[in-house]
Amino acid sequence: MIQVDDLTVRYGPTTVLHNVSFAVAQGESFALVGESGSGKSTILKALAGQVDDWSGQMAVGGQRVTRSSSRAQAAQIQMVFQDPYGSLHPRRTVDDALSEPLVIHGLSERDARVLAMLDAVGLARRFRFRLPHQLSGGQRQRVAIARALMLSPKVLLLDEPTSALDVSVQAEILNLLKRLRAEQRLTFLLVTHDLPVVSFLCDRLAVLRAGRVVETAGVATLRGRALASDYGRELLASCEGIV
């Protein structure tokens, strides 16, 4: 469902991704892990067509990502960020946020679709006309996820979707993502620095360091603390001692 081959990305004179390659099967959940600055978010942005200077090949759902990807293609792939404030307009209600993608793509039966999506993400219908600041962090993340799903995408790109939430709200959102993935047969590409989150939500992972993939492994390898690369083992060591 996602194919990335030899992806190199530059910001000005600086190369931030070096020949990154990986593939994610349909319905699979794949994690990108690595320290801050290793290039994880840049991979998501490149797939979403938000990076200018890149080389290599990328494809989503069999369609090549080009420098001018079409609207129909963009609808297939949606992003959810760490801070839902980033994707929600402060003066637009939940209803506006969920209706907008439908309006842009000329879809009808908006009322019914918005209500069905509120139900699907576990947000009570009374929140429909609230503004982002009238919601809790967890509720805002539910809205961001709902908005991302309005056009029935095949792929969700998730950039640290729970790292701004307290652990009990994180658990609710992780449960929601896991359920939605199964119900809607979604493919996930998840950026995180939290290996236990990978263990809960993902099938495989790639370990990134300084813009390079140093290891790709299955989640069983992760659970067995058997990552092979030096950096992978360092990451494992840094989550020892946490309960």
Partner: peptide
């Protein structure tokens, strides 16, 4: 409520 590394 914390996910665990070694548990599925």
């Amino acid at each position: 409520s914390l996910p665990r590394l070694d548990e599925d």
